[in-house]
Design a protein around this nucleic acid. Structure first.
Lengths: 132, 132
DNA sequence: CTACAACTTCAAGCCAACTTGAGGTCAAGC
DNA sequence: GCTTGACCTCAAGTTGGCTTGAAGTTGTAG
């Protein structure tokens, strides 16, 4: 069993953020010792999941629908697949962005938008993203 | 030359968001026709870049430092590389998340946190992310 | 048994990123 | 030449995701 402070430390969030997640129904404590919340170690995994979802651009409410504390997603299969595809698209964008950042770090061109290498990197992504 | 409405349509943002970006110094119009802002087509690329940055979790201010309208990043090379590595890490997370979503869509286990397949997917990421 | 640090609640505050609204300007079609 | 609707500015409002503060409670070390 874990104190909120331990969960905070292991997840990198603050105790107040964890309580906030609880208010939203994203996580829950298995019980209390006095007033203090006691958490199962598995909550760390769950919080990790939440953080990944946040990083992927989901709102906390959406995340709740996908990985609620009850573990039963309240959104349809089809929608989940759609989200997965969105993430796959985002992964492609991020790959480009990562390459662009490294390029910007090294390239001495006056404006990057005019650098041919830069433009080439961009073009790939914009083709993929067209009409999105 | 493009009207703000055209830029909005092609980028998927609203006109007010674009004006907001201008206030922050992220983009700029080449001129005005009467009061109306006129944009070069290249602004679409720039806005695309900004959106990618947002999706990667950067704040608008950070994005401004990387791809300001002047095209001269005001943050050190080293930092840019650090950001690129962060993005690479995020890409790994997103891959896991995408796989998890597809799994959640199909798996009938009562709670996903207890499904062995699910746990396996998670474990990979958590090893990578340990001590972050 | 007492002190104290770590927790608790609840309301209010904060920041980023926009959006909305009121009131004004102007280019283009009739 | 006048209307109309797309644009403009500027201030204020909204939303999401927390944080902060005040005031109270409690497990643990000394």
């Amino acid at each position: 069993m874990l104190d909120i402070a331990e969960v905070a430390e292991k997840t990198g969030l603050t105790a107040s953020a964890l309580r906030y997640y609880e208010d939203l129904g994203l996580i829950e404590a298995v019980g209390r010792r006095g007033l203090r919340r006691q958490y199962e170690p598995s909550v760390i995994t769950l919080v990790g999941l939440i953080s990944m979802g946040r990083a992927a651009g989901f709102s906390l409410t959406e995340i709740g629908q996908i990985f609620g504390k009850d573990g039963k997603p309240s959104i349809p299969r089809e929608e989940l697949h759609r989200r997965a595809e969105e993430i796959d698209r985002q992964i492609r964008d991020l790959k480009t962005l990562s390459a662009l950042l490294r390029h910007v770090a090294e390239c001495a061109a006056p404006s990057h938008l005019e650098c041919p290498k830069f433009q080439k990197l961009m073009r790939v992504t914009f083709k993929q993203n067209a009409k999105r």
